[in-house]
């Protein structure tokens, strides 16, 4: 018997394939959509996607693991990505990083135990003239101070949905 959540998943993915087309070039948009809504790409999902696009599951895994915004590991309800590049470094990203880690009680690459927030480093996010800069989900924050960082964490904690949803 097929578990109900599997059936639901199949319907969701079939809908995406319908919308985006059954070709290989739909793979990344499909994964982006699922990742955006479910915050993770588990092996079952990747298998269903592979089956529906008629490619090997290893291919799906290999693509997902390549991209920083797609990797399979579960993420929190919100993802904070702090820019680690030189200009943000000069502008004081280390103090912001410390405040984020301290406030969240986790390190970079980790997710809080309650599943609310994931903290990651980002390569340059193109805000070099207004650093330190970070992304909260799809939204950009500039000239972030350690106090701002703490406020951003508090806002993420208080909010169940994604900032961009």
């Amino acid at each position: 018997m097929v578990a109900p959540q599997t059936e639901e998943l199949r319907v969701e993915i079939a809908g995406l394939v319908d919308k985006l087309g059954p070709g290989r070039s739909s793979l990344i948009p499909i994964l982006q959509d699922i990742k955006h809504r479910h915050r993770e790409l588990d092996s079952e999902t990747m298998q269903v996607v592979a089956e529906m696009l008629d490619i090997h599951p290893v291919e799906v895994y290999s693509v997902a693991s390549f991209y920083a915004f797609l990797h399979g590991a579960p993420q929190g309800a919100h993802v904070i990505r702090l820019c680690g590049t030189l200009s943000c470094d000069f502008a004081g990203k280390d103090a912001v990083a410390d405040a984020l880690c301290d406030e969240l009680g986790i390190g970079f690459g980790e997710t809080t135990a309650d599943g609310q927030v994931t903290l990651e480093w980002a390569s340059c996010i193109g805000m070099c003239d207004q650093g330190p800069a970070l992304l909260v989900d799809d939204e950009v924050r500039t000239r972030v101070t350690p106090d701002d960082a703490r406020a951003i964490v508090a806002a993420c904690r208080a909010d169940e949905g994604r900032a961009d949803a």
Binding site: G23, R24, S25, S26, L27, I28, P29, L31, Q32, S62, V63, F66, Y67, A68, F69, L70, S123
Partner: peptide, 25 residues
């Protein structure tokens, strides 16, 4: 508009094309 997925190397034009085709960049 097509979206990238977080990979600097995809700015290289042939990697960009690979990515658009649904492959590793």
């Amino acid at each position: 508009v097509a979206m990238g997925a977080g990979a600097y190397v995809c700015g290289e034009e042939t990697a960009l094309i690979e990515s658009l085709e649904g492959f590793r960049g």
